[in-house]
Design a protein around this nucleic acid. Structure first.
Length: 914
RNA sequence: GGGCGGUUAGCUCAGCUGGUUAGAGCGCCUGCCUUACAAGCAGGAGGUCGCAGGUUCGAGUCCUGCACUGCCCACCA
């Protein structure tokens, strides 16, 4: 790799090149180790995007976080498996292909099930890989050799196995119940797929004539059209208003049907009139009540949301047209008593937006309670930790109030339910297509036409992707997976289901004890859980905090952002903004800032290579093998000791932050270190030492130190910015790196013995001095290039020695030409600045702006006084001295001493100025 | 109806387990094309941490209430 790097960083080609390299070299493919290996293992399952999906910001955030964690583990020596795949996404995909067919003038129904499914497969082969290709652009370090698709044969077999086992265990049943029906999708959907929306509506009060009296009983409803299917009116047993009507009947208006008045807890005396109409076929509560009282179920709305023949004169009308007509007729006949404004929680289909109809229908259900109990226990016992912690409670609440899960869908695309019906009425649930009916021997069996809810199969992925139902080595090694990173939105859809299925089907499973131990999970007792940890990340919103949506047109396309700013910068943005618990308002200006950060790194690299090459050319230094992990770093000067110390700190902080998913902290720490410490100070300080005409040994050391530290910093940054770090890292090794990729190099580990407090303190004083002089120069309006003489008063020997020892640095970085030490304080002079440890005076003929100076000092003094007062109050408080940690007291005392000095200097100067 | 978050500089956000002087980026102002970087450098202005109480030696951080705001869950017509 030539070191003639272009002046500005151009991510496009570089990123593409390395993304391809990582894949073609199979760097992230994992071989399952045999028994006997003792190595930490890290497993992560990619939440499978829909095959129909296109990468959006949510994916990108999710994948960036996963990739950071994955690369970090890999570099720390974990056997790291990240499993990618896609979800067949039943409804979404079917709708997509439906639409395509329609545009060709064809229809699903016209072509028949078999042909349609074949067509979907064809579509999948063509377009299904798009989202994974987009992932490749992000640099996601997944194991492409293990890519799965939820409809793969082996995964489908596992799905059938699960279904049959649950059926045999009595945990799957089939029955006619109220389900959420979406007429648009033509299928039942689960409770989770219904989104409630508060909309202004009406509450209608309708009176039903009581038979055998001239009395009426008034019921309240938001859905008058369902009265056509009423089979009772309920009142509460304790409601004395209605005691005299118990056992009587009413004549249902419009339908002229006699229906009983029943007593049931369904009716709450406080609400409305205390009497409620009962429509068992169109309301979940009424359905239950109907069962309790053995009421007939009259379906008046069909699967197309039209009134059925049971609706008499209203048959054929759309449900809402029917509502209008019913109200009209009720009014005309004097049955409508009142119409009140009322907010209705309308249930809409998550997918199509159609208003969902509670409808009586025969479906398959999972009896969820037994599995939910295990899933609750796993989290309660801490076998699974959920981060941030508040989601733990959300999860538990949901799990404790869970209802049976409707798993059948009236679709063609998906895992078909492995149940067959014989004409004799026998139902056969089997792993493989049965040849004949076990009861009557008939061969003409019809398979159930429904498919399974997509989440049924994705809920199994943690173990089915590892070869279940066979007992495989993969499971011993990689199950339970270590972590799951996902969005809150699918906590219930997916996470909760994985926990239930995992705990149920992997009960008794044991991870290879040696690997489990080495991975740090030794104390965990239960290896049936699908993952040890769950991290829930925030939502990405637009810059105005709005949820992104196609209809609002505020969707930010990550690929477009990547195109403009580079993948690394985009990844960095997402990491830096991802503070746990808060949503991310994606702001391009931040990404632009991180693009500049990449450029900064790039130019620091150019600087380094320029100097290394010059040194090598001059024969002062040879680019030999770079000792691993800062092994070649020889601290010679203050800045060497200082930067080494700072590096240990940033390394510690970054590792700590990643341990607890504080991505923003990790990113910001590296940013500050690299830009602030490394570029602004270290590089500036080391510059003269790199001059090839200098002392050979010291040039050599400087080159080695610069390169060592840069190389280590690249490794530190790599999980967040994989591309630019790879590019420069490869160049550092001149195409002969010790590993094929920086992704396989070791992650920096903090060595706290290399933290040098003295160096940090001294450097801070030096920085203070230089900044003070720069300050004064600006204030005095000294021409930029003019070197000025300065005077320094530094009563402490240490400080004086420090400045003398780094006189060069001061002269260069503050543009100073002569440093004179004096014996008396300079604080009062115009054109001087002071800190607690030194005074510095810039000798220059121009005058300071006295008024401005006075203002500044006044402000300073005020602050100092305030702080002194605060400090004194605390230090004179016995309680404080007794209770506060010694370190805090000590610090405060030290500060108090400093403040005294500062106050005196500042006050006397202020006095001087008048 | 239940639950969960947010409110800190003009804007977008950090501030983890309470501890000395509340930070960053962007924007703004001033001066610099100093041979790594003008996608840069140097300097600067800008905050009674939503409001009111409380706990504590000490509160942006913990507690209570209020206000505004966002989200999730829910089979009361």
């Amino acid at each position: 790799m030539p070191h003639e790097l272009p002046k500005a960083y151009e991510p496009g080609d570089i990123e593409k090149r390395w993304a391809e390299y990582w894949i073609s070299e199979k760097l992230f493919s994992v071989k399952t180790p045999p028994a006997g290996e003792k190595r930490p293992v890290f497993t992560l399952l990619l939440p499978p995007p829909n095959v129909t999906g296109r990468l959006h910001m949510g994916h990108m955030l999710n994948q960036t976080q996963m990739d950071i964690i994955v690369r970090w583990h890999r570099m720390r020596g974990f056997l790291t498996l990240w499993l990618p795949g896609t979800d067949h996404a039943g409804i979404a995909t079917q709708m997509m292909v439906d639409r395509q067919l329609r545009s060709e003038g064809k229809s699903r129904l016209g072509m028949g099930r078999e042909k349609f499914v074949e067509r979907v497969w064809e579509w999948k082969r063509h377009y299904g890989g798009a989202i994974l290709d987009q992932m490749k652009r992000l640099g996601a370090s997944v194991d492409w050799d293990r890519e799965y698709f939820t409809m793969d044969e082996n995964l489908s077999r596992a799905v059938r196995e699960v279904f049959v086992r649950l059926y045999e265990q009595g945990l799957i049943y089939r029955g006619k119940y109220i389900v959420n029906w979406c007429a648009d999708c033509g299928t039942a959907i689960s409770d989770l797929e219904v989104k409630h929306e508060d909309v202004p509506g009406k509450l209608y009060e309708i009176r039903y004539p009581v038979i055998g009296s001239d009395e009426f009983i008034t019921v309240a409803t938001t859905r008058p059209e369902t009265m056509l299917g009423d089979t009772a009116v309920a009142v509460n047993e304790k409601d004395e208003r209605y005691t005299h009507l118990h056992g009587k009947k009413v004549l249902l208006p419009l339908m002229k049907r006699e229906i009983p008045i029943i007593t049931d807890e369904l009716a709450q005396p406080e609400f409305g009139t205390g009497a409620v109409k009962v429509t068992p076929a169109h309301d979940a509560n009424d359905f239950e009540a109907g069962l309790r009282h053995n009421l007939p179920q009259i379906e008046v709305i069909d699967e197309h949301n039209k009134m059925s023949s049971n609706a008499g004169p209203y048959a054929g009308l759309d449900r809402f047209a029917a509502r209008a007509k019913v109200l009209e007729d009720l009014t005309a006949q004097g049955f409508l008593v009142a119409t009140k404004d009322y907010t209705v929680a309308l249930g809409k289909c998550d997918r199509s937006g159609t208003i969902v109809e509670p409808r009586l229908s025969t479906q398959w259900f999972v009896k969820i309670k037994p599995m939910a109990d295990k899933a609750i226990a796993a989290v309660e016992r801490g076998e699974i930790t959920i981060v941030p912690d508040n989601y733990r409670q959300v999860y538990l609440n949901w799990m404790r109030n869970i209802h049976d899960w409707c798993i059948s869908r009236q679709l063609w695309w998906g895992h078909r339910i492995p149940a067959w019906r014989c004409s004799c009425g026998e139902m056969i649930v089997a792993r493989e297509t049965p040849a004949k009916c076990p009861k009557c021997g008939a061969a003409a069996l019809e398979q159930d036409t429904d498919v399974l809810d997509t989440w049924f199969s994705s809920g199994l992925l943690p173990f089915t992707t590892l070869g279940w139902p066979e007992k495989t080595r993969d499971q011993e090694v990689f199950y339970p997976t270590t972590l799951l990173i996902t969005a809150y939105e699918i906590l219930f859809f997916w996470v909760a289901r994985m926990v239930m299925f995992g705990c149920h089907f992997m009960q008794g499973h044991q991870q290879d004890p040696a690997l489990k131990q080495a991975s740090g999970w030794g104390e965990k007792k239960d290896d049936s859980v699908p993952f040890r940890q769950v991290y829930i990340h925030a939502l990405v919103r637009d810059a105005e905090r709005q949820k992104m949506s196609k209809t609002k047109g505020n969707v930010i396309d990550p690929l477009e952002i990547i195109e403009r700013f580079g993948t690394d910068a985009t990844r960095f943005t997402l990491a830096a903004m991802a503070a746990p618990g808060t949503d991310i308002a994606f702001n391009e200006s931040r990404t632009d800032g991180y693009r500049k950060f990449a450029n900064k790194i790039w130019n620091a690299a150019r600087f380094m290579f320029m100097n290394l090459d010059a040194a090598e050319h001059a024969g002062v230094w040879k680019r030999a093998e770079l000792p691993a992990d800062l092994g070649g770093f020889r601290p010679e000067t203050l800045e060497d000791r200082w930067i080494l110390s700072r590096f240990q700190r940033v390394t510690k902080d970054v590792n700590d932050a990643l341990e607890t998913f504080r991505f923003h902290e990790a990113a910001n720490r590296i940013y500050d270190f690299f830009w602030g410490d490394f570029c602004d100070w270290y590089i500036e300080l080391i510059k003269p030492r790199l001059a090839v005409d200098g002392n050979k040994d010291s040039v050599k050391a400087a080159c080695g130190n610069l390169m060592s530290l840069f190389e280590a910093s690249l490794r530190l940054l790599h999980p967040v910015m994989p591309f630019i770090t790879e590019e420069i890292w490869q160049a550092v090794y001149d195409g002969k790196p010790p590993q094929k990729s920086i992704a396989l190099a070791a992650y920096p580990k903090a060595d706290e013995t290399r933290i040098d407090l003295d160096a940090e303190t001294e450097m801070a004083v030096l920085q203070d001095l230089i900044v003070s002089v720069r300050n004064l120069r600006a204030e005095l309006k000294v021409e930029t290039k003019a070197k000025v003489p300065i005077q320094i008063y530094a009563p402490e020997n240490g400080v004086r020695g420090l400045v003398e020892g780094n006189r060069n640095a001061v002269e260069r970085l503050a543009t100073v030409e002569n440093v004179e030490f004096v014996q008396t304080s300079l604080a009062r002079l115009p054109g001087a600045r002071h800190t607690a440890r030194f005074d510095v005076h810039v000798i220059y003929e121009k005058q300071v702006d006295v008024a401005a100076e006075r203002e500044r000092l006044k402000k300073d003094l005020e602050k100092i006084e305030k702080e002194i007062a605060n400090g004194q109050r605390q230090l004179s408080n016995e309680q404080f001295l007794a209770k506060a940690p010694a370190q805090v007291v000590e610090g405060l005392k030290k500060r108090a001493a400093e403040l005294q000095v500062l106050r005196e200097k500042t006050a006397s100067k202020l006095k001087e100025l008048g």
